[in-house]
Design a protein around this nucleic acid. Sequence first.
DNA 1: CTTAGTGTCGTGTACGAACACGGAAAAAGT
DNA 2: ACTTTTTCCGTGTTCGTACACGACACTAAG
Lengths: 358, 358
Amino acid sequence: MTLKLRFIKAINRTRIKDIALKANVSIGTVDRVIHKRGEVSEATRDKILAIINEMEYQPNILASTLASKKTFSFALLFPEPISSESYWNKPMIGVRKAFQEIQQYGVNINIHLFKQTDTKTFKREAELILNNNPEGVVLAPFFSRESKEFIAELKKRDIPYVFIDSNIKDSDKLSYIGQDSFQSGTLAAKLLDYSIPENATILVLQFAKEKDNMNHLVQREKGFYEYFNSSSAKKELITLEITDPTDITCQTKITDLLKSNAGIKGIFVTNSQVYLLARLIEEANLSGIRVIGHDLINENIHFLKKGIIDFLICQRPEEQGYRSIITLFENLVLKKEVNNENYTSIDIITKENLDYYK
Amino acid sequence: MTLKLRFIKAINRTRIKDIALKANVSIGTVDRVIHKRGEVSEATRDKILAIINEMEYQPNILASTLASKKTFSFALLFPEPISSESYWNKPMIGVRKAFQEIQQYGVNINIHLFKQTDTKTFKREAELILNNNPEGVVLAPFFSRESKEFIAELKKRDIPYVFIDSNIKDSDKLSYIGQDSFQSGTLAAKLLDYSIPENATILVLQFAKEKDNMNHLVQREKGFYEYFNSSSAKKELITLEITDPTDITCQTKITDLLKSNAGIKGIFVTNSQVYLLARLIEEANLSGIRVIGHDLINENIHFLKKGIIDFLICQRPEEQGYRSIITLFENLVLKKEVNNENYTSIDIITKENLDYYK
DNA sequence: CTTAGTGTCGTGTACGAACACGGAAAAAGT
DNA sequence: ACTTTTTCCGTGTTCGTACACGACACTAAG
C-alpha cells in the first residue's frame, strides 16, 4: 500500500507566469494584485484574483524573502537573570535556537533586559525598544502598570506583541505563551494527595524573597487549595511563609516544625527554591516526607536524583522562548494565523524520567 | 541594558563576490570549491578555503534551494493504523506538519504502510521504496529480520535512514526517534508505588492481542519489575496475561479476580488498551483502585476525566513523526549534524494537566 | 607541428518573487 | 485643441546561489 503527500514545488515553479498568461496580462500586473499595490483596474484585478483562486496559487516564501530586501527586527523584553543558574536564562536558550533557524529570513533580534527589582529599568528598556521601532515585540509583562503603558504605545503603532510567562487579559496581544499556574497548583496537590497516607499533614512553603513571578505563586497556591477544597481528600494543611530562606533563624524554624510535627508527610514549595528545603531535610536527616517543587534547575535536579525531592513540576521555559519568537515570525514573515493563547504543557518530573527532559 | 544577536543577512548578501575578489578568482571557481566539484587546482582551492574559513561564510539556504532544481524524496514505512483511533495515526499527524513546513524546500514524501500481521506487506513496500530510490527513509523496524535486510540495501546505496518508535542497535542509522520503554515502566512502577498503601497488591495486566510494539511491552514490564526489585517498597505483584481482551470469559476473569482479592489497590496495564479495564471497573462499580496505563488515545482520555484511570504515561507520537522527518531534512537539505539518538520525553498525564498535552 | 584529450577556470542564465522605472492611455484642466 | 495630471501596466533588474557551456592552456600522441 502506498500513499502520497501532494507536492507543490514543481507546479509552483512557473506559476506566476501561467497566471499572467491566462489572464493575458503582464507578470507585473499579477504582482501588483498579489501585493495589493492598487494601480490596477478593478476589472483586471478581479479577473486575476479569480484565476489565482482557481489555481490555488501559493507564493514561494523562499523566493519572496530572498527578493524583498526587507529585514525584520524583533525586540525582546525579559527580566535579567539573577545568576547563571537562574530561571530566566532558559527562555533565552530557546530564543537563540529560534534565531538560528530564522535569521536566514532576515530576522534580527534585539534583547533588552530589566531588573526585577526596578521598574525604572523596565521603562527605560521599553523606551529603547520604541526608539528602534521594531516589527514585533516579545515581552514578559512583569510590572503590570508599566507593561500596560508600553503595550498601549505598541498598539498605537500597530506593532504586534507576544506575552511570555505571564498574561494580561483583554490586551489585544498577538499571543500568550506560558503555563497555567492554577492548574499546576492543582496538579501538585493531586500528586501529594496520592503520595501520602490519609489523615497526614501537608506543609505549604512559600519562599517570598525571590519576587520572580509573584502572580504565578499566588495562582499556584490557589490551585493547590482548590484541589483539597473540592475533593474528599482528608488532609490537614499548614502554610508557612518564609521571607528570607537564607536566614538561619528561618531555617531552624522549618526544621523545628518538621521535627515537632511528625504528622507532616508532604511538603509543597510554591517556587523553584525547593532545593533550600531539600538541603534542610538532608541535614536534619529526615525521611518519609514527600517533597514537591517547581522548575528544572540544577540544584533541584541534584536533590531529585538523591531522592529527597520526589516531584518537580515544570513548564518548558526553553520552549516558551522558542515559541514566542516563532510565533512572531509566523505571523509577520510567513503571514500565517497564530494561536492567541498557547499554554505549554505542565510536566511532572521524577528521578525516573528526568533524563528525557533536556 | 541591550544585547544583540549577531545578524548575518546583510553581510551574506555579497559574500561570494567578496570571496572571489579576495582570492582573485571568478565566482564560478569559488562555487566549485564550495560544492566540492573538483575541477579546481589544489593551490587555488586551498587559498579559497582559507578565505572562506576566515570570513566564516555560510551559504544562504533559501537562495541555494531556490537555485538548485534538486528535489528531495523521502520515504516512510509505517504500520497501517488498525482503526481511526489507533496509535499509528498520531505519528502521521506530525509527519504532515513537518511536510507543510519543508515542502517549500523541494521535499516530497511518499508514505508506505504495511500490515502489522503480515511480513509480506512489509517486504513489498520496502521494495517499492527501493524502486523509487529516495534520498532518505524513515521506518519503524517492526519486523526485525525484514528490517535488517532492508537497511542493508539502504546502506549499500548510501541512503540514510531514521528509526522511529523502536530501535535496532549497531545499524549505522542516521538517528533513532522514540522513547525509552524500560524507563517508562520504571516510572509507572514508582507512581503506583507512591499512590497505594504499603503492603497492598498490584496487578500487572498484559493485553497481548494487539501485537503493536511487542518489544516495547516487554521492556516496559521489565522496567516495572526492576523498580520493585531494587527498591525497598513492600508490594505484592500479580501478573495476568489476557490474550483476547474483548472476550467475555477473559473479562469476567479479571472482574472476579478484583472482587475476590480486595488487597489489589493498583493496576498497571502495559499498553494503550487500559480503557478496556477501566470499562470493567466502571461496570463492576469498584473503587479505591489506582489505575495506570499508556498513551493518550480518546478512550483513555474519557476514563481519565472520569477519574477511573489515574495516570497515563505517554510518549509523544506526533512529535516523533515530526522529528523523524525534520531530522532527515536537517541532515540532507541543511547539511547539519543530527543527534544519533533522540529520546522523546516520558510524560505523566493526569486529569489535571491533560488539557495541556495536545 | 598539428590535433585530440584533459584539467582549469570565467561567463551567462536560471530559480521565483519584488519593485523601480518609465511609457502609453485615459481623464482632467486650460 | 493642447497641455497636464492621473491611472494603468510592461520591462528590466535584483536578491544569493547553482550549474551548463564554452574558452583557454597544457600535455601527450600522431
